[in-house]
Computed example of a mutant assay.
Amino acid sequence: MFDKGTVNHESYITKALPVALRYGNKVFGDNWIFQQDGAMPHQHHLTHQWCEANFPSFINKDRWPANSPDLNPLDYSIWEELVNAMDWNKIRSKATVIQQLKSSVKKIRESFVFESCDVWTNRLYRIFQTDGNYLR
């Protein structure tokens, strides 16, 4: 959560990416892939340089289809788990949103994250088999 304004590439590189790197290394070790979409801070060449230099593996927006939530376990699975773990009645301010996010992330089972990634791998394989067409 950023205090003010929109996120630019500088704040994304200095504040968000190191957190993603620490979490990824903690949960997945040294064999995992970081993926980004086409959001403005993600597109900057310095963001790409940082990601390529620091993450074990990196998929940039040029190698990832736009508007593809069914290809991203965070979008189709883990966000829903996070939202369901939050106590929405306690949210009254930015501070309580942050508190609820932090406590809810801790409620998501590690096995759920791994299961979501397994399902994601299967979905990628099925999309490859259909030559990139929609899954039914």
Rank of each mutant, 00 (worst) to 15 (best):
V83L: 14
F112K: 14
Y12N: 02
E52A: 04
Y23S: 03
S111C: 10
K4L: 06
H9V: 02
I108D: 02
R92F: 05
A20Q: 11
R22V: 11
A16S: 14
W50K: 05
T14N: 11
E115H: 03
K15S: 10
L71V: 06
A16V: 15
F112I: 04
M1P: 12
F28G: 03
S77A: 12
H44G: 05
K4Q: 13
N8K: 09
I127A: 10
C51Y: 04
T47N: 02
T14I: 09
L17Y: 07
F2C: 14
F28M: 12
P65Q: 00
W32E: 05
N133E: 07
E10W: 01
C117W: 04
W64H: 03
S103V: 09
I91L: 10
N133I: 00
T130Q: 05
S77R: 07
A95T: 13
N72L: 04
F28S: 02
L46R: 14
T96E: 15
V19W: 13
F128S: 10
T130N: 05
P41G: 08
D87K: 13
G132I: 00
Q99N: 12
S11Q: 08
F58T: 05
A95R: 14
D62K: 00
C117R: 09
G24D: 05
W120L: 09
P41D: 11
F34V: 06
E80I: 11
Q49G: 08
H45V: 09
L74A: 15
L124F: 11
K15G: 05
F34Q: 03
H48L: 11
E115A: 04
N72G: 08
S11T: 13
D131S: 01
L82Q: 10
K94S: 11
R123I: 08
D3W: 07
N89R: 14
A39P: 01
E110V: 14
D3E: 13
A85I: 08
T121M: 09
L101F: 15
D131G: 00
W88N: 13
Q35L: 09
H44L: 06
S111T: 15
R109D: 14
F128P: 00
Q100K: 07
Q36R: 01
Q43M: 05
P56S: 05
G24S: 07
E52V: 04
P18N: 09
T47P: 02
W79I: 12
H44V: 08
R22P: 00
W88D: 11
W120P: 02
R126A: 12
